[in-house]
Amino acid sequence: MNTKKALFEYCIRIGDNSMILGHRLSELCSRGPILEEDIAITNISLDLFGQCRNILTYAGEVEGKGRNEDDLAYHRPEHEFRSVLLTEQPNGHFGTTMARQMLFSVFHYYFYKELSKSNDVHLAAFAAKSLKETMYHMRHSSEWIIRLGDGTEESHEKMQEGLNKMWSYRHELFEKDAVDEHLIELGIAVDTAKFKDAYEKQLEEIISRATLEIPEEGWRATGGRIGHHSEYMGHILAVFQSLARAYPDAKW
């Protein structure tokens, strides 16, 4: 396998996850349940976009075809996006948004922690910086899940519903293919299998503190990482890319 191509693909996967989840959270800007939470969610969205910009810029450099972050964000078609299906799921009610965030942020935490030891110096520095942001995202969403789960009857019910809805999407975060294997061998990529148990254990702990039930295992989400997205992705990109497509190279 061509290492340059694999590294490009690897960066795109990281960046697209942050981009699509960041976009979903940005939809809540001015629609937060309270002012403080509105700011909190928007902050998290901005953190994710910051991560996305960094890694897509690097992806463009690795690729060496002169594409920058904007080219990669705004001028790729849906099937070239490598984000996992979890990130594109609709916000639903607040319990759903927090469940999605927690499943992703806990993963992101372990992922960045490992990636900060990467042999690729750019990836290592990027991960170390992103890890701090992610620790806060994880804390924010976990604390909400604990409060809503262990809150009123209605909040408990809604939190459980949100968790059930998002639960099966987490498996895709741990998928591995030839790109991963090749880069793991070189000490560049993270072997996510290493922290799967720790991830599951941490979810169980949050769920038990929230007095919620661990949802039943059913189907497993898959496809996002090879560009097979759910029905929501087209709508997201239509909004996300519309300005750049209508007015190419628009400047502030």
Binding site: E36, E37, I39, A40, N43, Y136, R139, H140, E143, R147
Partner: peptide
């Protein structure tokens, strides 16, 4: 208190 800390941090 914990949520107040988080909100204060964010705001």
């Amino acid at each position: 208190g914990e949520m107040a800390l988080q909100n204060a941090r964010d705001t």
